[in-house]
């Protein structure tokens, strides 16, 4: 895989779609092309977040920690960007990620990613949009859970 192919791949990532070609090229050149084997951990929960990733090929599982051990709570596919939230908030990784099958990914260093946001309002706006979507989704889930909880507590209270 050479730089030009990577540039094409990056362009397919929605967040980077509107980036001018030179910027995209720089992003590709300064990123690290990594390969992961089936079952290999990309990172673990609690690790320091020093980079964001773009999947070029393959699938990655999101592992959420539960009392009964890690559980697969989501799946990421080709052209998806991940790990950028922890970079933005400068916080440790919230979940672990594991390769399902062979995976090729581009690793974008935190410096480069933040620089990209600072210099390209389009990209920054897109990040905001995505974050908002995630926030809304989380809020919905929260509301659902709250209602569910209320329903159960009201159902069980007469027995007390």
């Amino acid at each position: 895989m050479d730089l030009q192919t990577e540039v094409e791949l990056l362009r397919k990532v929605p967040m980077f779609a509107k980036l001018e070609p030179a910027k995209l090229k720089l992003l590709a050149f300064t990123s690290q092309a990594l390969t992961f084997e089936d079952g290999e951990m990309i990172f673990r929960a609690g690790e320091h977040a020093d980079s964001a990733y773009v999947i070029m090929d393959g699938e990655i599982e999101i592992l959420s920690p539960t009392d009964a051990g890690p559980v697969v709570s989501g799946l990421l596919g080709r052209n998806e960007l991940f790990g950028e939230l922890a970079v933005l908030t400068n916080s440790p990784r919230s979940a672990a990620l594991r390769a399902r099958g062979a995976v090729r990914a581009l690793r974008i260093s935190d410096d480069m990613f933040l620089k990209l946001l600072a210099e390209n309002s389009e990209v920054a706006l897109d990040v905001m949009r995505q974050l908002s979507v995630k926030l809304t989704r989380t809020h919905h889930q929260y509301e659902e859970l709250r209602r569910e909880l209320e329903r159960r507590t009201s159902a069980s209270s007469p027995l007390d």
């Binding site: 030179a22 090229k25 720089l26 050149f29 300064t30 410096d111 480069m112 620089k115």
Partner: peptide, 20 residues
């Protein structure tokens, strides 16, 4: 050509240039 294209706009002394 690639280097000039990629790094010409980056401010001189940037870590990016020295690193990559």
């Amino acid at each position: 050509q690639l280097m000039v294209e990629l790094f010409a706009d980056i401010e001189p002394g940037s870590e990016l240039v020295e690193q990559f």
